[in-house]
Design a protein around this nucleic acid. Structure first.
Length: 278
DNA sequence: CGATACACCTGTGTGC
DNA sequence: TGCACACAGGTGTATC
C-alpha cells in the first residue's frame, strides 16, 4: 500500500501530532513483526519516558527519533497504518502496538496482512540497521537527478518497471506510482532499462518527481487500507491516470485509448496501448 | 553480481 | 450458502 507519498503524508501528520510528546506507556498486543536487537518486549523498556523528537523518512520507511538516541523505524508493508486515535475511539482489530503519549494522544500501529514491521534501533545507528540496509537514493532527495537515474539504469537488462520497484536503486516508488510515472513519460510496459534514450530517462525523471509531488499534495492514494497520520484516507486515487483503470479511457488529452492490464513478475501493470510505446 | 520466482499473511470479490 | 480461486499498495530469500 504505502508508497513514498503515503509515507510522507503520515510523516507530516505525525510531525504535527506526536512530535514533542512523551511515551507514557507501550501496549504490545502482537510482537512477531517487531525487529529488535534483543527482545520485542524491550520496546516498552526502551521507549517509555522518552519523547519523540522528530519524524523522518527514508524511502518507504518512517523514522521516529526518540530523545536520548534510540530510533523506532516503521515499515508499513502493504496494509500498515500508523495514526493517532481520536478521543474515545477504540483501536480496531489487527492493531499490534499502541503508544500512549502525553496529552492523552494514542499512536497506533495496525497491519492486517503483517507484511510490515517495526524495528527498534537502540543505538540510533540508521546506517547499520536491518530495514535500511538496501535502501537506495530517495526519490525526493536532491541527489535523485536524471543523471543519477541514468547511471542506475545503465547496463541493466531487466524490465524498467522491475528496476523502478527495486528499493536499492531508487527508494520510494511502488506499483501505483511506477505505472503512473511510466504513463506520464509515455514509456511502454515492456521497456527495458538499457534501451532507453537519454530524453526518455529525462522525461521519466520529470514524471516521477511530478507524480510524487502531486500525490503528496493530495495526501496519498487510498485503495483500501491506507490512512494518513490522522486516520483519514488520501485523495490521489481520483487522479490516477493508469493504475486500476483497466477498460477505462486514457486520461491523456486527445488520446482516447483504453487502459489495459497485464501481469509482469506477478504484479499488475496498467498502461495505455495507444499513447505509451507498447 | 543480476534477474526472476516465490513465500510471507489476511481479506475481499468473483464465479460456479 | 459454500467453496475455490484470483487478486491486493511490499520485500526478503532462494535459485539460476
Amino acid at each position: 500500500m504505502p508508497e513514498l507519498p503515503e509515507v510522507e503524508t503520515v510523516r507530516r501528520g505525525l510531525s504535527r501530532s506526536v512530535v514533542g510528546r512523551t511515551v507514557e506507556a507501550v501496549r504490545v498486543r502482537r510482537c512477531d513483526n517487531i525487529l529488535c536487537e534483543t527482545e520485542p518486549h524491550q520496546l516498552a523498556e526502551v521507549l517509555t519516558g522518552r519523547s519523540i523528537e522528530w519524524v523522518g523518512r527514508r524511502g518507504k520507511n518512517l523514522i521516529l527519533q526518540m530523545s536520548g538516541g534510540p530510533v523506532l523505524l516503521v515499515n508499513l508493508g502493504m496494509t500498515g497504518q500508523l495514526y493517532t486515535l481520536a478521543e474515545g475511539e477504540e483501536p480496531l482489530e489487527h492493531t499490534h502496538v499502541i503508544l500512549e503519549l502525553s496529552g492523552g494522544v494514542r499512536l497506533v500501529y495496525r497491519d492486517t496482512r503483517r507484511f510490515g514491521h517495526l524495528e527498534l534501533i537502540c543505538d540510533g545507528d540508521l546506517d547499520a540497521c536491518m530495514s535500511l540496509r538496501n535502501v537506495g537514493v530517495d526519490a525526493r532527495s536532491r541527489s535523485f537527478t536524471a543523471r543519477r537515474l541514468a547511471e542506475l539504469l545503465a547496463g541493466r537488462t531487466a524490465l524498467l518497471k522491475s528496476a523502478l520497484l527495486n528499493q536499492s536503486l531508487v527508494a520510494g516508488l511502488g506499483n501505483i506510482y511506477v505505472c503512473e510515472a511510466m504513463h506520464r513519460a509515455r514509456i511502454g510496459p515492456e521497456a527495458r532499462c538499457n534501451e532507453l534514450a537519454e530524453a526518455q530517462i529525462e522525461a521519466l525523471h520529470r514524471a516521477i518527481v511530478a507524480v510524487l509531488d502531486e500525490a503528496i499534495k493530495a495526501e496519498g492514494t487510498t485503495i483500501s487500507d491506507y490512512v494518513t497520520g490522522a486516520g483519514v484516507p488520501g485523495s490521489f486515487q481520483r487522479r490516477l491516470r493508469g493504475y486500476g483503470r483497466e477498460g477505462l479511457t486514457c486520461r491523456r488529452r486527445g488520446c482516447g485509448g483504453v487502459i489495459r492490464r497485464i501481469v509482469q513478475s506477478n504484479r499488475s501493470t496498467f498502461y495505455c496501448p495507444k499513447c505509451q510505446g507498447g
